[in-house]
Design a protein around this nucleic acid. Sequence first.
RNA 1: GACUUGGUAGCUCAGUAGGUAGAGCAUUACACUUUUAAUGUAAGGGUCCUGGGUUCGAAUCCCAGCCAUGUCACCA
Length: 488
Amino acid sequence: MSEQEKIRIQKLKKIKLLGINPYPSKKYKINYNIKKLLYDKIKIIKKKKKIYISGRIFNIRNMSKSSFIDIKDYSNNKIQLYYNINYIEKIYKNNKYYIFLFKKYLDIGDIIWISGNLFITKLKEYTILIKKIILLSKCIYPIPNVKIKNKKIYYEFKNKEKRYRMRYIDLIVNDKIKKIFLIRSIIINNIRKFLNSYKYTEVDTPILQNIPGGANAKPFITYHNKFKKKLYLRISNELYLKRLIVGGFKGVYEFSRNFRNESIDKNHNPEFTILEFYVSYKNHIWMMNFFQKLLIYICKKTFNKCKIKINNKTIDFTKKIKKIKLFDYINEKTKLNINENTSLKKLINICKKFKIDINIKKKEKIIDNIFNNFCKKNIFYPVFITDYPIYMSPLAKKNIKYKKLTERFELYINGIEIANAYSELNDPIEQLKRFKKQNKNKIDKDFIKSLKIGMPPTVGIGIGIDRLIALLTNNDNIQEVILFPQMK
RNA sequence: GACUUGGUAGCUCAGUAGGUAGAGCAUUACACUUUUAAUGUAAGGGUCCUGGGUUCGAAUCCCAGCCAUGUCACCA
């Protein structure tokens, strides 16, 4: 325990000895948050309106018989308080308590409630003259003292490991971090509003699954004691949402927390949020347009504009998103002249030639690798990559004209896969074949059964919410938009 | 998993050609009745990530490990 922490615990004891509860349960009246107070400041001064606010102390400047205290509240705004013994009303029996409380026992980080009146100091700072002050919560663990002058931050709390492990401190001390998570919340709410306006239904499907399907990833494994069997945290909710389409919903969506037991990097967290969204009687072409509408809606409602600055470049989300076929794009960038029929041998030779590491010698892996190595990073402006071969898309419907390709697209922006969508395969016999080809140990037969009952033509999309939010808030690491990123 | 950079006070960081550590803010004490990164004076605070090795002596050099940053691989 640090010296400072010990001192604060001593202070806490002394506060209690004075008969003051440092963690009172009484609800104190609040009639302004600081943002609103600053907005109404002129009116408040004119009408001499009494103010009741609370907030966390960020700085104390003690004079001999008076003090200035800066507090910040949930509105993320700061206001200066002026404390002078002559203006303080009696609450406790002995007014000296106030002196003790203030001079000796209040610290940066404490949460207080005050009542008083607004006035302007000689230096033209709007300030509250304290009439009453109550300690609401004592801060015992000293928070980093970040100082700000002329919008320049000194002694910034910026150690990433500490920030992520103690996100509560990060949020208190770094205003811009709190803003990111406010935006995250607004974006998710806006998506919900948009989808609800089309009468699509938000649903909840199992996180604990018997068979982890809908994607190809290593699952987290757990165990049910009563059933005496393994259960898996979902890697995807895709197969469940399709069951619901079979069940007759017009459209369903879920903000799905998925779990994948794989490594962590700036685009991957073991648990992450995907918006999965399925609409019956529509196809992937419809989804391209609808998805762009959604993106435009998010930008308009969240940022009040459709041009978003990312890495000093501007993306206009109203511009029609380009469509490029996967192999056309690869060939354009690499001149390799490959397609869905290119043999495994030839693909392996290409990898050898370009020194691309391949662990698993499968066509789908190699093509993905080629795309990642030569194409992905060059994409900045939004692009729909389309026409993936069947062997890369076991759940997607065949293209009518080119039977080795699927009706699928992925959206790439700034070198990152943001979304993946396709017209859903609804032929149960073919689906079973493809599952078998995948060498899956466990095939979700119940899902096949649901397809046998008949799923209407359906389009589905998965949108990486963490990645999308990182993109829109101009962060290049999803840890910055996940409140508690996984750490060892 | 590979490489990379780093881990020193509550926070941000400096430092030593190897002689057990410094600054600013924060903390404590005193002064100051309008300051605002308050100021002035004084003081306290450290397993220099952990464990080995080299050395008379290691926070510094070497080895191993742990944790993290970044890049790459893996994650259709």
